[in-house]
Design a protein around this nucleic acid. Structure first.
Lengths: 194, 194
DNA sequence: AAATACCCTTGATCTGGTTTAAGATGAATG
DNA sequence: CATTCATCTTAAACCAGATCAAGGGTATTT
């Protein structure tokens, strides 16, 4: 059950057996059925969640009532509303399961304790946060500088298989355009391949 | 000279006098004249740079030759090409000074040493990276879900005074539209205020 | 004190992507 | 097994914002 999270953490820091035991003792296992919420906007996000299996999406509902996918999370990703988790304030985003999913969760108090007892975890979360920041900044630039078609092609290249796993209209939402327009892009792609 | 960076770091971690001395001993002071480059695309970004005074911009040149402002950095911000700095690979972005600026810089080797000798700095950079990630993600959502006018109004509210400090066409670039369109937004704003 | 380089504005025209609306297909549910 | 619900497609009208082109103001340079 802990194999994937330990392999993931092990990419960035080395842990002693006792540290591994301590770390895993802080984790709680959570099963989510398809369509079930992990966090709803307005709630406080109590846990940082690691995806062992399955697929989730985080989305935001704007003033006009339209939904926008903030991120997808598949195996070996962390998910939740980070701002809400860090500040224990109410979440702006919703996260729900697109498939039946298995998560490992840690709460704020346990994480603080973990930072204190095993400071290497500060390093681990520093590294993954820096990477997440770099990716988010790239996504800003892509959204600003590329056409819808370019973003779509980069998406299927960068997240291979994900387009087979989640509905197209959610990919369109993630990329910042309408499902109708994605349909047109795909049609044009298909005719070009002939 | 070190007042602002120590106050900034002090917001997140507490340092002993000896740790302060050690930290500041690793910093190097850098003066940039207006228009001078801090990092050019293709170079390796050797330093993480803290802005003591002045204003810089990081920008990206796309395939079509258009520039896009990735971020502005004013007093108490860190700047540079983070991906290039972390991996010591060549930078995708350019950073240059919009005003004469004073920086404090740390190189990769010194930072590694700092993490080893004063692990609290892992914590410090974890926290600011997490915040940076949250902001970057908000910017993605804003770009996807709001109109040009809404983004502009949020920008001047969120970064008060910055619109007086940097040319308008760079703000337009940062927000993801053309300078001509910003001009029209401002005209409409002015007429509404009458 | 010209000359040059920036910077901002305005108008006309064009386009990438939205909106609205309708229909087709398949999957989940009572 | 009928019915709702979710997903995807297509097409026509429409719009936010881009592009192109021109002109004017103001620093900075020479």
């Amino acid at each position: 059950m802990y194999d994937s999270i330990l392999a993931h953490v092990g990419q960035f820091i080395d842990l002693e057996p006792a540290e591994i035991d301590y770390f895993t003792s802080l984790l709680r296992f959570k099963l989510l059925r398809k369509r079930q919420y992990l966090v709803q906007a307005g709630d406080v996000c109590k846990f940082d969640s690691f995806v062992v299996k399955g697929c989730l999406r985080t989305y935001f509902v704007d003033d006009r009532g339209s939904e926008h996918v903030v991120q997808f999370a598949v195996e070996n990703w962390w998910t939740g509303d980070l701002y809400s988790f860090l500040t224990q304030s109410s979440a702006a985003y919703n996260t729900d399961a697109l498939e039946d999913s298995e998560l490992l969760q840690i709460d704020q108090a346990s994480l603080d304790e973990l930072y204190r007892r095993v400071p290497k975890f500060e390093r681990f979360f520093r590294i993954i946060s820096q990477r997440a920041f770099v990716s988010a900044e790239k996504r800003v630039i892509a959204t600003i500088s590329q056409t819808a078609e370019e973003r779509y092609l980069n998406f299927i290249e960068r997240y291979p298989g994900l387009d087979q796993r989640v509905p197209q209209h959610l990919i369109a939402s993630y990329l910042g355009f309408t499902p109708e327009f994605l349909s047109r892009i795909r049609k044009q792609q298909a005719s070009r391949r002939k």
